[in-house]
Design a protein around this nucleic acid. Structure first.
Lengths: 125, 125
DNA sequence: ACAAGGCATCGACAAATGTCAATGTATGCG
DNA sequence: CGCATACATTGACATTTGTCGATGCCTTGT
């Protein structure tokens, strides 16, 4: 087994023992992501990687009871109701927000666990 | 000034004092994001919100010296060299990766500060 | 000088994305 | 019932995005 790569740098084998592999919470910077994990986190990140959706999340977080309905959000965001509903659906599908229907209103609130998972995923733990 | 919104929920005024506003590091969950901050963070998040780019970052992080050249990455990622270069450029432009040219090779390494900034932005600080 | 290898850039193209207007669904009120 | 309100869904459209093949640039070795 060659210890030297084609370009002359020393190469060590990245054979991790099962104990070293992060079974619990995959992290960006500890070991190469599996294709599945990469897709999972990309899906969540994609949901958040939009200026409008970032503002929606922050508006909900700053709202009373940490929840808000669509009618609370359309005006501060400056977009139409269908567009806001569309963005909220993306965030709910990604597990970033939680939707609870009460009466005529849909109340959206944070799914803190998902944001925490993202935060720890990105931090060099 | 009405204390009750149209839908009957109690509303308290979110008038933050300047001291409460996060001047240093904007966080998703403390106060409504400005449009500029939303765009800034969306740009960084967009760069990372792709399965291929997540794997590139994790491959670089797991590589010796925490750096890798394009030729180290094409095969594990399973994409052509131009495509990999394209993804790396996006990550560099977003400040997630750093590029250093040595000889014929371009060595890519992590820009830890940016990932930390992202992580803290998402965490409920 | 020449050839080869590593990488960036360009042009093209299909697929995904953000937005809107129009419409549909369901809840509450007279 | 009938109407208004809050929200979701649909269809359409322009823009962006991910990928590739072809090509160009630059460094190294002969």
């Amino acid at each position: 087994m060659s210890m030297y790569a084609h370009n002359g740098r020393v190469t060590t084998q990245p054979t991790l023992s099962p104990a070293e592999a992060d079974v619990c919470c995959p992290s960006l910077t500890v070991s190469p992501l599996s294709i599945e994990d990469a897709h999972d986190f990309a899906r969540i990140l994609k949901a958040v990687a939009d200026p409008t959706r970032l503002r929606l999340v922050s508006l909900i977080a700053a709202h009373e009871q940490q929840e808000a309905c669509v009618c609370d959000l359309t005006e501060p965001v400056g977009l139409g109701q269908p567009t806001v509903s569309h963005h909220l659906k993306i965030l709910v599908d990604a597990g970033v927000l939680h939707r609870e229907k009460r009466g005529v209103w849909s109340y959206y609130s944070l799914e803190a666990a998902t944001l925490n998972r993202l935060s720890e995923f990105l931090s060099p733990g």
